[in-house]
C-alpha cells in the first residue's frame, strides 16, 4: 500500500513526461470520438459541451451526479473487497436486488415502527440481504469449489427475477391499480435526503464504506492477512491464515455493501420496490472497481468520471438528438487508453 501511495505522488509530480503523454492520450480519445461524431454529421464541440454541462454546469447537475455515484461506489466496493483476496464478484447487481428486497420486506412489515428504530433496522436488513446472497457464493467457493465468477453471475439473474416475482405477485399493491409496485413506504421508512435535492443518506454509507475499507485494508491485521492471501494463497495457508473464512467474510461484507445500495435506492429514491430499480449499477460498479485497481480512493474518482458521462448522455440526447450510446463509446475509449497505458498493469495476467 505504501508503495502504491508513493507511486501516486510519483505519477502526479515526478514524471512530467508521462503526464503529458497521458494527457495527450486522453485528448486522443476525445479527438477520436469527436471525429467519429463529425463523420456522422454531428458537432463534437457542442456534444462535449452538453456532456460536461449536464453534470458540472449547475448545482442541480452536481447533486444528481452524487445521486448517480452512490450506487456506483457501493457496488464497486462490493467488488473491490473480495478482489483483494483474488475473488471475482460479478454479483453486485444481484446483491443490490436482494438487499432492496429484504429491506422492502422490513419496510412493508414494520412500517409503523418509529423512524429511529425502523431506519437502522432497514439498513441492517438491506445489508443482510446483499450479504447473504454474496456469502452464498463465497460458501459455494469454499465448500464445493464452485467458481464464484459463474455463481455470482448466474445468481444476478435469479435475484432480479425474485424482485420481479414479489412485485408482480405477493407484494403487489392493490391501491396501485394492480401495477407491479409494492405499497409506498411509510415516511418512517424513507431514508433522509439532503435539502431539496435527491442526494440521500446512501452517499454517507458509500463514503463511510470507502474510508473504512481503506483503513481496514491498510491498518489492520485483517487487511494484512488479506494482502497475504491475495499475494500468495499457498503461503497464507502455510502461515495458518483461515482462507475459507476470509472468502466467505469478504463476500459477506461486499454483498452487504451492494445490498445497502439497493436499500438506499428503494428507501430514498423510489419509496417503494418496483422492477428496474437498478440500471446495471452492479456491472458498472464492477468496471469501476477494476479500473481503479480496487483502490478505495480510485473507486470514488472512477465513479465520478462514469457519473459525469452518464449524466451527459441524457443531455446530448435531449439537446442534440445524439443517441445515449455516444457516451458508451467515449467511456470505452477512455478505458481502453487507461488500460493500454500500462498504468493498470495487472497483478497476475
Amino acid at each position: 500500500m505504501e508503495a502504491r501511495m508513493r507511486a501516486i505522488t510519483r505519477v502526479g509530480t515526478g514524471q512530467p513526461a508521462r503526464l503529458i503523454r497521458l494527457m495527450g492520450m486522453v485528448s486522443f480519445a476525445f479527438l477520436a470520438v469527436g471525429i467519429f461524431l463529425w463523420a456522422f454529421g454531428k458537432n463534437p464541440v457542442r456534444a462535449y459541451g452538453e456532456i460536461f454541462q449536464g453534470a458540472l454546469g449547475s448545482t442541480y447537475g452536481l447533486t444528481e451526479l452524487l445521486v448517480k455515484m452512490t450506487p456506483f461506489i457501493l457496488c464497486a466496493s462490493a467488488t473491490a473487497l473480495p478482489a483483494r483476496i483474488g475473488l471475482i464478484n460479478v454479483g453486485a447487481e444481484g446483491q443490490l436486488h436482494t438487499g432492496a428486497l429484504i429491506a422492502t420486506w422490513g419496510a412493508l412489515t414494520f412500517g409503523d415502527l418509529p423512524r429511529g428504530i425502523l431506519l437502522p433496522f432497514l439498513v441492517i436488513l438491506g445489508f443482510a440481504g446483499g450479504a447473504i446472497w454474496g456469502s452464498f457464493s463465497g460458501a459455494l467457493r469454499t465448500m464445493v469449489g464452485l467458481n464464484e465468477t459463474i455463481s455470482t453471475l448466474l445468481l444476478n439473474y435469479v435475484a432480479v427475477l425474485l424482485v420481479e416475482h414479489y412485485v408482480h405477485g405477493p407484494w403487489k399493491d392493490p391501491a396501485s391499480f394492480n401495477w407491479p409496485f409494492t405499497a409506498e413506504f411509510t415516511e418512517a421508512a424513507r431514508l433522509p435526503t439532503f435539502g431539496s435535492s435527491r442526494v440521500h443518506f446512501g452517499l454517507v454509507f458509500a463514503l463511510t464504506a470507502v474510508v473504512v475499507l481503506y483503513l481496514v485494508l491498510r491498518k489492520t491485521r485483517w487487511g494484512y492477512e488479506m494482502r497475504v492471501i491475495g499475494d500468495n494463497a499457498e503461503a497464507a495457508r502455510r502461515a495458518g491464515i483461515p482462507i475459507g473464512r476470509y472468502i466467505v467474510l469478504t463476500m459477506f461484507i461486499g454483498g452487504g455493501l451492494a445490498g445497502l445500495a439497493g436499500m438506499a435506492e428503494v428507501s430514498a429514491i423510489q419509496g417503494r420496490l418496483r422492477p428496474g430499480i437498478s440500471t446495471g449499477f452492479g456491472y458498472t460498479g464492477f468496471l469501476v472497481s477494476w479500473l481503479a485497481s480496487h483502490h478505495p480512493i480510485g473507486i470514488v474518482i472512477m465513479a465520478f468520471l462514469l457519473g459525469v458521462l452518464a449524466l451527459g448522455g441524457d443531455m446530448i440526447q435531449i439537446n442534440l438528438g445524439l443517441p445515449y450510446s455516444t457516451v458508451n463509446i467515449i467511456m470505452a475509449l477512455i478505458f481502453f487508453i487507461v488500460l493500454g497505458s500500462g498504468q493498470l498493469k495487472k497483478m497476475g495476467a
Partner: peptide, 28 residues
C-alpha cells in the same frame, strides 16, 4: 496472482483525466 513490485496506481492517471475533463467542461 503475483503482484509486480511496482504496481503503479491509476489514481494519478484518473485524477488527471478528471481534472482534464473538468477544465474542458468549464471551457466549453
Amino acid at each position: 496472482r503475483k503482484r509486480t513490485k511496482q504496481t503503479r496506481m491509476p489514481l494519478g492517471v484518473v485524477g488527471l483525466i478528471v481534472v482534464f475533463l473538468v477544465s474542458f467542461g468549464i471551457l466549453l
